Computed example of a mutant assay.
Amino acid sequence: MADRTSSSIVVEAGRPEIMAIIADLEAYPDWASGIREFTVLEAAADGRAERARLTFDGGPFSDTVGLRYTWEGDDRVSWRLDEKGSVVTGLEGAYTLADDAGATRVTYDLTLDVRVRVPGMVKRKAEKRIVDTALKGLKTRVER
């Protein structure tokens, strides 16, 4: 896997409320820019996804990939690639939630590998755009 991209945002809500929005994968197309479809393939007894299929439009390319999830209560969720796409060959990510002066700091970590050769600086810039856009969308969705 390549270098990790990470960014954080403070959201005016508690961890359970934020994690409920994050856990509702099938609603992502309503608030997460570039996500066309999210389908839960397997869920745990608590209803949270264990496996899901994601279809996205990522600017110069689109792809569909399978993801496997690990949930740590309302503190953290991580995912990794379970099925490669036609372009995406590696993907790991996580949302980590921590209390922050009456609000919650949400940190999004992402590592993405693609089949197409992309200069490192361009790839990191694209990852940063994905992470920052997702965090802003999440904040807007939770705080509305």
Results as ranks from 00 to 15, higher is better:
residue 75 D to S: 13
residue 78 S to P: 15
residue 68 R to G: 01
residue 15 R to K: 09
residue 13 A to D: 01
residue 50 E to H: 04
residue 118 V to R: 02
residue 135 L to T: 10
residue 142 V to F: 11
residue 60 P to A: 15
residue 6 S to K: 01
residue 42 E to S: 05
residue 44 A to S: 09
residue 112 L to S: 08
residue 38 F to L: 06
residue 124 R to N: 07
residue 74 D to W: 00
residue 74 D to K: 00
residue 96 T to V: 14
residue 88 V to A: 05
residue 7 S to H: 11
residue 28 Y to L: 07
residue 22 I to N: 09
residue 88 V to Q: 03
residue 28 Y to N: 04
residue 3 D to N: 10
residue 104 T to P: 15
residue 61 F to N: 10
residue 112 L to K: 04
residue 19 M to Y: 12
residue 34 G to S: 05
residue 58 G to P: 14
residue 126 A to W: 10
residue 111 T to Q: 14
residue 33 S to Q: 05
residue 83 E to W: 00
residue 62 S to I: 02
residue 82 D to P: 00
residue 105 R to I: 08
residue 141 R to W: 03
residue 48 R to M: 05
residue 107 T to R: 12
residue 132 D to K: 00
residue 6 S to M: 10
residue 39 T to Y: 06
residue 130 I to F: 10
residue 54 L to E: 00
residue 78 S to C: 11
residue 111 T to W: 04
residue 32 A to H: 05
residue 32 A to N: 09
residue 96 T to Q: 15
residue 90 G to S: 12
residue 7 S to E: 13
residue 66 G to R: 02
residue 57 D to L: 00
residue 119 P to Y: 07
residue 120 G to A: 15
residue 67 L to S: 02
residue 138 L to N: 10
residue 95 Y to G: 06
residue 93 G to A: 13
residue 65 V to E: 02
residue 86 S to H: 05
residue 119 P to L: 04
residue 51 R to H: 13
residue 101 A to I: 07
residue 50 E to C: 04
residue 96 T to N: 05
residue 41 L to K: 06
residue 110 L to I: 04
residue 135 L to P: 15
residue 17 E to D: 14
residue 18 I to Y: 01
residue 120 G to W: 07
residue 80 R to G: 14
residue 65 V to K: 10
residue 96 T to P: 11
residue 83 E to P: 00
residue 84 K to V: 02
residue 76 R to F: 09
residue 98 A to Q: 15
residue 65 V to D: 00
residue 100 D to N: 12
residue 130 I to Y: 05
residue 90 G to V: 09
residue 76 R to S: 08
residue 80 R to H: 08
residue 87 V to Y: 01
residue 2 A to N: 14
residue 132 D to P: 09
residue 83 E to T: 08
residue 128 K to Y: 05
residue 85 G to Q: 02
residue 20 A to G: 04
residue 115 R to E: 12
residue 121 M to Y: 12
residue 40 V to H: 02
residue 4 R to S: 12
residue 114 V to I: 15
residue 142 V to N: 06
residue 98 A to W: 13
residue 9 I to N: 04
residue 77 V to A: 04
residue 124 R to Q: 14
residue 79 W to A: 08
residue 15 R to C: 03
residue 19 M to V: 09
residue 114 V to G: 12
residue 101 A to F: 13
residue 109 D to N: 14
residue 137 G to V: 02
residue 89 T to F: 13
residue 3 D to P: 06
residue 29 P to M: 00
residue 11 V to E: 15
residue 96 T to L: 10
residue 13 A to G: 01
residue 120 G to E: 15
residue 13 A to S: 03
residue 26 E to P: 03
residue 46 D to C: 13
residue 84 K to H: 03
residue 92 E to W: 07
residue 130 I to N: 05
residue 44 A to Q: 08
residue 24 D to E: 11
residue 30 D to M: 02
residue 37 E to G: 01
residue 70 T to V: 08
residue 84 K to Y: 01
residue 80 R to M: 07
residue 43 A to E: 01
residue 107 T to A: 08
residue 108 Y to K: 14
residue 77 V to Y: 15
residue 51 R to N: 06
residue 62 S to N: 07
residue 110 L to F: 09
residue 50 E to Q: 13
residue 61 F to I: 06
residue 142 V to S: 10
residue 123 K to W: 08
residue 134 A to T: 14
residue 13 A to K: 02
residue 62 S to D: 11
